[in-house]
Amino acid sequence: MIRRVCNRFLTAAARRWPAELRDEMLAEWRAELHAMPGTARRLRYAASLAASRPHRAEAVAVRPGRSFAHAVLSLVLVMGMAVLCVRITIDWYTGFSEETIAWQAWAAAGGLVIAVGLGIICARVTTGVTQLIRPVFTPLWICGIVYTMSLSWPLVEGYQLTRSAVIDQTCWLLSAVVLCALAGRIARSGRVALSWAVVGVAVLVSFYFAHMHNTLSHFDSPGMEMFFDGAFLRGYLVAVVTQWFLHLTIFLLVYAHSLVLRHQAGQAQVSLPPVPA
């Protein structure tokens, strides 16, 4: 127990040291701790290091202007992506026919991949967001932009917002934010692959909630099976992948999670080898 506490103190202390010195200092402290007699002295040794500041700060350039610019760029990118998704849907997926359904389905499937790629690219160019907004709140920031847009858009257009739309959008926001924050926490513990799996679940769950008052979430026939010789599953899948909100949700959650991962990578986690008794 004491050893674990001391180890945590030393790890916390090492995190504040410049990255190039962390491993070396941690090894040195552990060696001293190992040779130190007495529990109280060990605790005092580790706690003193944990409470102190290193001789020089970690080489992180704090540039508030850059972080603010990245946050603004993030806002623009998310809003732009939302508008683009709606635009593409209007142009490509409002009408279906026997001749067009095949390329529409493939284009929509390709759109899912593009949404993932764009999410990763956007995270690369707006890394300063997590300097301004805590990583745990990053999904709320990113999804919150779309939530605000979706609720304010009817007011701008001059038609009344329905209660069902508010419920669906709110459930979408809550599920996406909570699950994406959970994914970030899982990634922090080193299980990055599992964290991406949680993001995948977050996409499905939040998309379901976004369509609670829609036939898609009831798994009813969307009428697309007529293009596939009555095959319900194929028709249903095409109906789902051609939904602009699915593409947008994938983009948002991949973007948010990539930002969190980049932030965590920047923090350069200190490894925790076991301390010999």
Binding site: L21, E32, M36, Y45, A46, A50, S52
Partner: peptide, 20 residues
């Protein structure tokens, strides 16, 4: 480190930044 802590009467949190 431990010997220097004793000789200088400084806590570890002060000593190691100085050594660095």
């Amino acid at each position: 480190g431990m010997a220097l802590m004793q000789a200088s009467d400084l806590p570890s949190g002060t000593l190691y930044p100085i050594l660095a």
